[in-house]
Design a protein around this nucleic acid. Structure first.
Lengths: 193, 193
DNA sequence: TGAATAACGTACCGATAAGTATGTTATTCA
DNA sequence: TGAATAACATACTTATCGGTACGTTATTCA
């Protein structure tokens, strides 16, 4: 019984996610959140808990959606090399079309919170490890199909690609010349052979 | 005329640098700064300006010292491959000996401030570009000496190595297993041939 | 040696932070 | 249909934020 909730939890959580993604944890105030989410302060606390719990919910929403996006992107291309190439290129293209770079919410959190909060150290690590497994499975598919050499160390290679992707995502926040990242992608992808 | 300054500007700036490096800009308060720097609030403002100007001075101090450290590390080894290998390995070893990862102050700033403040976008970009040039000169030395193949694209390769180093530095904040980063370094360094 | 001046410590400023108490409105179910 | 209850909006609390006014102490140079 009682009054029914007037807001859509998923929608307002999505709005919080966007804001935390743009500005980070510390730089986002409760006032920022209420205006962006379109609900009042006590509604946030009753639905999500305090600021940090809301942040965690937002980050979990992000990582789940991100992982599924990456998985489908890599699985839907019969060519493994082509799949990685277009994936990396799209990450870059997306960043350069936005007027200012948001980068990756998980990476932002790794930098801001992981060293000071074990919960986020674990959460961000597990997301990257999960992405690494997706990469690894894709590489193994390429070995199976004969597109990649049989001697390739799929696990080590997938880890190197994840690290490169993180580096690319981060350096784009300083808006280097497009040629810088384009060159980098070409070199990184020569690891796939 | 007037009273002489009782604190060493370089020393207190160094203390501020350490603190901003550990906690970032937003999470560091003026009270944190006064206690760590050992001077009072008005002394900070008279010597360095406001919080953001102090942060900028601290970051500039960091990037200059970091660049010179990287330069000497890479120049002091006759073997280019060996120079890069030991450099990357030491970056990792240093991170894993500290109880919690500070990473790189410039990278932290690239993530926290560069997307919202053009001054730091430029400052962080220029530091990375400078490091990239140091890498490039080192690679060119290796080509000259015959240690590396003549066909190597020194510029593109140096950019890829910078990006990889950034990725490594960032992912270590989530404390992945040591084998993860060790594998990654091995793969990345196969680009040097 | 004393007037001028700059660094000092203290104590304050208004603004804003995160979080909550409280009274009102809407919905439910006995 | 009315007592119970949950979501609502408003307004508040306490603490801390970045920044500064002000009176004191130490140094300098005419």
């Amino acid at each position: 019984m009682g009054r029914t909730r007037e807001f859509d939890e998923e929608k307002v959580l999505d709005a919080a996610m966007q804001l935390f993604w743009e500005k980070g944890y510390e730089a986002t105030s409760l006032s920022d959140l209420t205006s962006r989410m379109g609900i009042q302060r006590p509604s946030i606390y009753s639905a999500f808990g305090d600021k940090k719990e809301l942040f965690e919910a937002a980050l979990r929403k992000y990582t789940m959606s991100r992982a599924s996006h990456v998985r489908t992107r890599l699985q839907n291309n019969p060519s493994v090399k082509e799949a990685f190439r277009t994936f990396f290129e799209d990450v870059v293209a997306e960043e350069y079309t936005e007027s200012r770079s948001r980068g990756c919410f998980c990476i932002n959190t790794m930098v801001e919170l992981a060293p000071h909060d074990e919960k986020f150290e674990i959460l961000t690590r597990e997301h990257q490890m999960y992405l690494s497994v997706i990469f690894q499975e894709t590489i193994e598919r390429g070995i199976q199909s004969g597109e990649l050499e049989t001697g390739v160390n799929a696990k080590a290679l997938s880890q190197a690609l994840i690290v490169s992707l993180i580096g690319l995502t981060v350096i784009m926040k300083s808006r280097p010349k497009r040629s810088f990242v384009d060159n980098t992608i070409k070199v990184i992808l020569t690891l796939l052979k």
